[in-house]
Design a protein around this nucleic acid. Structure first.
Length: 347
RNA sequence: GGGUAGGUUGAGCAGGUGGUGAGCUCCGCUGACUGUAGAUCAGCCGUCUUUCGACUGUGGGGGUUCGAUUCCCUCCCUGCCCA
């Protein structure tokens, strides 16, 4: 699911999304409730009609903003009080209100309000946020408003195996339509993420419901997660990095702002069939980025979303024909720079 | 021809009225980004050096001075005004 926080996957039209092979997108409770407001979207016929996207939409609950806007909110057992990043006004989000907003938006999948925390915090704080997430999960189920909307629960627990196991058991025991793993890709190591997904996979066992890893991921992360039973992803990376000039290819990542591409007549990825690769050169994109031309953002986003979804299509095919590990190794090799340890300030 | 204001590191500017000018914004170079307060942010951006640091640099030339970006002479270049 490409991320379309504000009722748009930035720089892309619904037509672009369909051409890129997008099946489902993500929208956001927090942002849309502030602007243009959930009530207005409801009056205008719901989120699908509002943004002219007739495919499935999953809406995030605002749980991530509980984490990312830590300096302008306060959390208590009943809910979260935010100060708007737009105008500083105060807003209250409870599990019930998050469900109400998502019912108004009319998304196909609603997420429960959860509390994720920095996994490096002391264990009692991680455990407290997990316990609160569990209580909020039960309240969210009780508050679900419409039968045509699926609701997913969210497993928390940081990178502590025992807490994760406990959370997976608790959330897995509730009658959700799908199970999400939250609180990862927030600074923990790749090994910690993999280990945590192992614990969750073990705890959920043969549970047939769809499993969604929230906020992931990078090309390599998909393999790590699918190996551990994950079915569904959302991530801002393909579109965000595209807007800053980075494109993903079978040969790894390219930064189109680099001077080396100014004279490169080849397409971003010769194997890609997207609009950008079919019609334009790296040199053209490099020029557009330098000139800050708006087309740069669309073409790069079209490419990254297309390429990412094609990667996932190939990943699914590799599961069927047994070539998963070969494909995995190839992507690991191409994107090796990503997993290389970043030089520290003293290095 | 006369007058006047200027000439600072790729560009545009600060600053500097005898003793420390490498400061800003662009441009440029590179990196980062994981449930989007992000078409954003960070580092670098005279030369040498990995760093520390060293050196050079205020249009050219000359003069005064222990010492000149600063004072004097002269030349060159640019804008504006007058003829």
């Amino acid at each position: 699911m490409p991320v379309g926080t504000q009722a748009t996957v930035k720089a892309l039209t619904p037509g672009d999304l369909r051409a890129a092979g997008v099946q489902m997108i993500l929208g956001n409770t927090y942002h849309l409730s502030l602007r243009p407001t959930a009530e207005r979207i409801a009056r205008l016929g719901g989120l699908h009609r509002f943004m002219a996207w007739d495919g499935p939409i999953l809406t995030d609950s605002g749980g991530f903003q509980v984490f990312s806007l830590a300096d302008r909110r306060s959390v208590d057992d009943d809910g979260v009080t935010f100060r708007s990043h737009l105008d500083g006004s105060t807003h209250r989000l409870t599990p019930e209100r998050a469900m109400e907003i998502q019912a108004l938006l009319g998304s196909d999948v609603a997420m429960v309000l959860d509390q994720l925390v920095d996994p490096s915090l002391p264990r009692p704080e991680v455990a407290e946020a997990m316990a609160r997430t569990h209580r909020w999960a039960e309240r969210s189920l009780a508050a679900r408003g419409r039968p045509d909307q699926a609701v997913f629960g969210i497993i928390q627990g940081g990178v502590d195996p025992e807490l994760r196991r406990e959370s997976a058991a608790f959330i897995g025991a509730l009658p959700f339509d799908g199970i999400a793993v939250g609180g990862l890709s927030v600074g923990e190591s790749k090994a910690e993420m993999a280990r945590t997904l192992d614990v969750v996979a073990d705890a959920l066992g043969a549970d047939p419901r769809p499993r969604y890893l929230m906020g992931v991921g990078s090309p390599v992360d998909f393999f790590t997660a699918v190996e551990r039973g994950i079915d569904l992803f959302d991530c801002v990376l393909p579109t965000r990095v595209a807007r800053t000039g980075q494109v993903w290819t079978d040969a790894g990542r390219l930064n189109l702002r680099n001077a080396a591409f100014l004279d490169d007549p080849s397409p971003i990825d010769p194997a890609c069939r997207c609009e950008a690769c079919a019609n334009h050169s790296r040199a053209y994109l490099a020029h557009l980025f330098r000139a800050r031309e708006l087309l740069a953002y669309r073409l790069a986003s079209v490419h990254n979303v297309t390429w990412t979804l094609e990667l996932l299509r190939r990943l699914r095919a590799s599961l069927a024909d047994g070539s998963f590990s070969v494909l995995h190794a190839g992507v690991e090799r191409a994107f090796a720079r990503e997993s290389a340890p970043a030089p520290g300030p003293d290095a």
